[in-house]
Simulated assay, not measured.
Amino acid sequence: MKIPFTWQYCLAFMAFVFVFGQLHETAHLTAAYFVCGQPGIQRDFNLWTLSVGCENSTYAYVPTIFGPVFSYVCMWIGFFMLRTDNKRLWPAAFLLVVGNVAFARVLTAALGGGDETTVLKALLAVQPIWFIKALGFVLVFSLAFPPLYMVYKRLANKHRVGVLAAFCVLPLIIMMLYEFILLGKVIEAGVLPQAHFLGIADFIYVHTALMAVVVFIFRKTLFGASSKSLT
């Protein structure tokens, strides 16, 4: 498959990243509700917390792992789609793997952070921190690299390493500047900061809905345009 570098595709791809990024966060908060009886709190795009008192729960680590579980399930669905001979599924598989920021999970774990490492710290508190971080990286790499490698194998772009690198790295920069910084300041300024459902600020719901509309409008570009160049 060939991934097009058109503005329509890149716009729709980023919208997909934003939608599934928020689904990742919603998985955290939904799990928090079942563990604690009340949701956590997400006031911006970069941070969620447990509700007051929930951090003392024996299972306080459970909500932390459910975000990655959601993302890995998506990545591995994409992995198995790419293994089939049905090439029309490959564009959607590309989105499920790369659009769930598989590379970011590996990079964060390599730096000693991430949800997975946080959970390991809770479960293996008696172990040396270097061991926990190393184990976290091995775990994340084992889960995220195979889908990424399968994407690489299926790409037919002339410079497929560069194409894959661009779609792995550039969205992280855009998310940092646009979601975490710019939209974070919008929420801080008092635009729909209230949380009426699952502890998520209303502004985040509005933004996610708008991104979902963008994905819908450009769905043929995302799921069909690259299928014209399948090999």
Rank of each mutant, 00 (worst) to 15 (best):
Y205N: 07
A201L: 09
R160Q: 12
M1A: 13
G78E: 04
G99K: 03
V17G: 01
K2W: 07
Q194L: 10
G199H: 07
L82P: 01
K185Q: 14
D44T: 15
I3D: 01
L172W: 02
N157Q: 02
T84M: 04
V191D: 07
Y149A: 12
F80C: 08
L192V: 07
V19Q: 07
M81W: 06
L111Y: 10
T117N: 09
I129P: 00
L89Y: 13
C74L: 14
K87D: 04
W130I: 13
S227I: 09
K185A: 06
T108E: 13
C10D: 12
I173D: 04
N46D: 13
L198R: 04
N46T: 14
V169N: 01
A209W: 06
V52A: 15
V186M: 07
F5K: 14
H28R: 07
T117D: 02
G99A: 10
W48N: 11
E25W: 06
I65H: 05
T208M: 14
G190Y: 11
L107M: 14
F18A: 14
T118V: 10
L111K: 10
S51Q: 11
F167I: 00
F141N: 01
L183G: 01
F70E: 04
F180G: 01
A189H: 12
I77C: 03
L192W: 11
F13P: 01
P171I: 11
M1Y: 09
F131S: 14
N46W: 13
Y59W: 15
W130M: 10
R88L: 07
F141V: 10
F79D: 01
I173W: 09
V191H: 14
L183S: 01
Y72D: 00
Y59C: 05
L96A: 14
K185C: 04
S142T: 15
L11R: 07
